[in-house]
């Protein structure tokens, strides 16, 4: 596999300069504009995502938070008429630079969707799929190890250990979502994007996923879109509030929910008509 990721010199310099003062950001976005045809969905978004933390993206429907999330692993590439401007860097490397291998990028930046979407395959094969196409396992034993570890990390192993050959679609909604998380972490990503990962789940399954997210942040950088403000407040350390395609306010989660600065953020988090 060719790993021709072209380095953007200016971005590297920026991250290095930052490194002198603090831990470098895992993902940096600068001047990001996104257009769907003629319609502009994001307007000059600048947002830096710190490593090993959970960053929540909040905002009303249509504010651009999911669009932004999808820029981070170039999921928007497959949307007709979608155009992304600006610079998004992963570890200082521009992911929109020419020659970037998108498949490799999406292995580094995994994604979990709103609705659990396991493949119509066995539980085992759901998790093994990614490592197989990326050639991460040299033998059957290797693959077993990857599958078991991923299921363990996703907090699902104990529930499915004796039925790895059963179809993934036969699991409950919450289990399916954890299967999708296991599938995402099987390819050893660095960043996990979650687009409303709990909105289709009951409170117990939601609590399990939240618990899991808290554990996963030790090893991964997590960026999550959520409509539940309580969930954002519970699981994230950083929060960014989007409104009408603009990034209105970002900061420590506790500050955003206890003393937001911008009037639009105040109105949104307190449930007022903005």
């Amino acid at each position: 596999m060719e790993l021709a990721i072209h380095t953007d010199v200016s971005a590297n310099a920026r991250v290095n300069a930052q490194g002198l003062n603090s831990k470098p950001h895992k993902v940096t976005a600068e001047g990001v504009n996104v257009f769907y045809g003629n319609k502009q969905a994001l307007n000059q978004v600048n947002l830096d995502i710190p490593s090993n933390m959970v960053t929540a993206l909040i905002g009303p429907s249509g504010c651009g938070k999911s669009t932004f999330l999808r820029c981070l692993n170039r999921m928007n590439d497959v949307v007709d008429g979608c155009r992304v401007e600006g610079e998004i860097c992963l570890d200082g490397e521009n992911i929109y630079a020419r020659g970037v291998d998108v498949v490799h990028l999406r292995a580094r930046v995994g994604m979990v969707f709103q609705k659990p979407n396991p493949f119509p395959k066995s539980i085992y094969d759901n998790v093994a799929y990614g490592p197989r196409i990326h050639g991460l396992a040299k033998s059957r034993t290797d693959m077993d190890e990857i599958v078991m570890t991923s299921l363990e990390k996703a907090g699902l192993l104990d529930e499915v250990r004796d039925r790895l050959d059963a179809p993934g679609t036969g699991l409950s909604g919450g289990q399916q979502q954890r299967l999708c998380i296991a599938r995402a972490i099987a390819v050893e990503p660095e960043v996990i994007l979650m687009d409303e990962p709990c909105s289709a789940l009951d409170p117990i399954a939601t609590a399990k996923i939240e618990e899991l997210i808290d554990e996963l942040k030790e090893n991964y950088t997590i960026i999550m879109v959520t409509h539940s403000m309580q969930q954002a407040a519970r699981v994230s350390q950083k929060t960014a509030f989007f409104h009408l395609g603009e990034l209105v306010e970002q900061g420590d989660t506790t500050d955003i929910f206890t003393k937001p600065v911008d009037e639009r953020t105040k109105a949104y988090v307190t449930g007022r008509i903005g």
């Binding site: 309580q230 407040a233 929910f257 206890t258 003393k259 105040k266 988090v269 307190t270």
Partner: peptide
């Protein structure tokens, strides 16, 4: 209500 921000205060 699970108040937030100014409401919580």
């Amino acid at each position: 209500r699970q108040p937030m921000a100014e409401d919580l205060r």
